[in-house]
Amino acid sequence: MLILAVDTATTVASVALVEGERLVAEEVLNIPQKTHSERLLPVLVRILAGTGVEIEQVDGIAVSAGPGSFTGLRIGLGTGKGLAQALNKPLVTVPTLDALAYNYYFPETLVCPLLDAKQGYIYTALYWGGKAGLERLTDYLALTPEELTGYLEGRDEPVIFLGDGIDLCGAAVSKLQGRAFLVPEASRLPRASSVAFLGRQALAENPGGVPLTAQPLYVRKSAAEINLEKKRAQLRRG
């Protein structure tokens, strides 16, 4: 079974093709100069051309669904939806933090993917490397780096950190002293191969995939909605 996966949740654009247990091809483009809109399909075309696979041969499409950059998520999911609709193939969405944690984990460790959510926030979730694979311990969260410290305190297992939010969380990470492990640069970035492998599992559980109305995992509301809620709360208080 051939799975085509895309990840555009961060500034990285990645496309991968996975057949069964085998990673057939992957491209990770980490250049901020061009928008996802300009580079995603060309990357996808290169992957197909390089492997000699025709788009019609793909059995399912997996998309990194967030959290992440709102616009990036829409370009990834919009591309996935367009392909799935035009090819009449199932679409599955994979939480971006799940995929990132899948990049690099070991049994009996905590994994803490960190993504820059801008405006002083990070997106994160905490995972435990269990016997059957990764087990998510928290919700998908938008936190300040200070709040992250609270989530990591009171545990004594080693913590594996990865993602583009590491630099923002220096204080929280250094508090853990010898228990913090920073993943090497190459495995820190979101990779579509992880999205593809997790997407393959999701598709096995749900062969029809998600509906074409599927939304990204935004985690955060739009600024306008937050402001309106504040205004209404103020009115209620009088």
Partner: peptide, 15 residues
């Protein structure tokens, strides 16, 4: 605009 452009491109490519 990006939503329409993205979906249109994916469909045009796939078909």
């Amino acid at each position: 605009l990006l939503v329409g452009v993205t979906v249109a491109k994916a469909i045009a490519f796939a078909r």
